[in-house]
Amino acid sequence: MKIGRLSRETGVAVRLLRYYESQGLLASERTEGGHRVYAPDAPATVARIRRLLSAGFPTRTIRDLMPCFDGDALQPCVQDHLTGHLADLEARMADLAKARTTVTALIASAPPLSSY
Score class of each variant (00 low, 15 high):
111 P>D: 11
72 D>S: 15
66 M>Q: 08
79 Q>F: 09
49 I>G: 09
48 R>D: 05
2 K>W: 09
33 G>Q: 08
29 E>Q: 11
79 Q>G: 14
46 V>Y: 01
4 G>A: 13
28 S>L: 01
78 V>C: 04
28 S>A: 11
37 V>S: 12
44 A>W: 00
76 P>V: 10
40 P>Y: 02
80 D>Q: 12
70 D>R: 15
60 R>V: 15
6 L>A: 13
23 Q>C: 14
49 I>Y: 01
37 V>Q: 14
13 A>S: 11
98 K>V: 14
43 P>E: 06
19 Y>E: 03
25 L>N: 06
69 F>W: 04
84 G>W: 00
43 P>K: 07
41 D>N: 14
106 L>I: 09
63 R>V: 10
43 P>H: 05
85 H>K: 11
44 A>L: 07
104 T>F: 03
43 P>M: 06
29 E>P: 01
9 E>P: 01
44 A>I: 08
34 G>T: 10
34 G>N: 10
50 R>G: 12
76 P>M: 05
101 T>M: 06
22 S>F: 00
34 G>H: 07
21 E>P: 03
7 S>L: 07
85 H>I: 06
115 S>L: 11
37 V>K: 07
26 L>I: 08
83 T>W: 00
86 L>K: 08
43 P>S: 08
96 L>Y: 08
92 R>G: 15
108 A>Q: 02
52 L>N: 05
97 A>W: 00
7 S>C: 10
61 T>E: 12
12 V>L: 08
39 A>S: 15
16 L>V: 14
41 D>H: 13
107 I>V: 07
40 P>H: 07
62 I>A: 08
69 F>E: 08
11 G>P: 03
12 V>R: 04
4 G>V: 11
104 T>H: 05
53 L>C: 07
16 L>P: 00
95 D>G: 15
23 Q>I: 02
114 S>W: 02
48 R>M: 06
55 A>K: 00
24 G>A: 03
20 Y>N: 00
76 P>S: 08
19 Y>I: 08
107 I>Q: 01
112 P>V: 11
6 L>N: 13
83 T>F: 03
15 R>D: 12
99 A>I: 06
38 Y>I: 12
84 G>M: 03
44 A>H: 04
41 D>T: 13
38 Y>K: 05
98 K>Q: 13
5 R>F: 11
77 C>Q: 14
50 R>K: 10
10 T>Y: 07
46 V>E: 04
54 S>N: 06
56 G>D: 01
107 I>G: 00
44 A>R: 06
36 R>W: 02
42 A>T: 09
63 R>M: 06
74 L>S: 12
15 R>G: 13
75 Q>R: 15
61 T>K: 04
7 S>Q: 03
110 A>V: 01
66 M>G: 14
92 R>C: 12
86 L>M: 10
42 A>Y: 02
91 A>Q: 06
7 S>K: 04
23 Q>V: 07
74 L>G: 13
14 V>H: 00
51 R>H: 03
31 T>I: 02
46 V>M: 03
62 I>R: 02
103 V>L: 12
18 R>K: 06
37 V>C: 14
38 Y>V: 09
